[in-house]
Computed example of a mutant assay.
Amino acid sequence: MRKLCTLAAISLCLSAPAHAEGDAVAGKAVFRKCAPCHSTEPVNRVGPTLAGVVGRPVASVADYSYSPAMKAFSEGGKVWNEAVLAEYLQSPKAMVPGTRMTFAGLKKIEDIANLIAYLKAPAGQ
């Protein structure tokens, strides 16, 4: 039930007008938690590049070796849209059991919305 309530709040946050879109400038600060493993440049690190991740098919960076769990999760043509990203960022291991990503997740809905806003256009921030 808690997960359902949290997902509903995230969905509401991402779909409501104005601030709900997230603040990309604040999202850049949140991205510091991701930067040890990910880049917003077209360069893979420990994790795949997040350049263009919003709207990209899951597990589709050609020169990155995804875990079997992430490959299985991508089946059926899943795309990293805002709703999928919001759920994943809250708890990667809960959404994709067996993922190699060790990050525990973001607990604040506002941080998730801000990070997604930043990922949509990191070069402009």
Rank of each mutant, 00 (worst) to 15 (best):
M1D: 11
R2I: 06
K3T: 12
K3F: 12
K3A: 13
L4K: 10
T6H: 14
L7R: 09
A9S: 10
I10A: 13
S11L: 14
L14E: 09
S15Y: 07
A16M: 13
A18P: 05
H19T: 12
A20Q: 15
A20N: 11
E21G: 12
E21A: 13
G22P: 06
G22C: 02
D23P: 10
D23Y: 05
A24W: 04
G27A: 06
A29C: 14
F31Y: 03
F31M: 11
F31D: 05
K33A: 09
K33R: 13
C34S: 09
C37P: 04
P42Y: 12
N44V: 01
R45W: 06
V46G: 01
T49V: 03
V53M: 03
V54N: 00
G55S: 07
P57Q: 14
A59I: 07
S60W: 03
V61H: 02
V61P: 04
A62V: 08
D63V: 02
D63G: 09
Y64A: 01
Y64W: 11
Y64H: 07
S65W: 14
S65G: 12
Y66V: 08
Y66D: 02
P68D: 14
A69Q: 06
F73S: 01
S74Q: 07
E82F: 10
A83D: 14
V84E: 08
A86E: 07
A86Y: 06
A86P: 04
E87S: 10
Y88C: 01
Y88G: 02
Y88W: 11
Q90H: 14
S91P: 14
P92K: 02
K93W: 14
M95V: 07
V96S: 14
V96C: 00
M101H: 03
M101N: 02
T102N: 14
T102C: 05
A104T: 08
I109G: 01
I109W: 04
N114T: 05
N114F: 11
L115K: 01
I116Q: 09
I116D: 00
A117T: 09
Y118H: 13
Y118S: 10
Y118L: 02
L119T: 00
L119W: 01
K120Q: 08
A121D: 15
G124A: 07
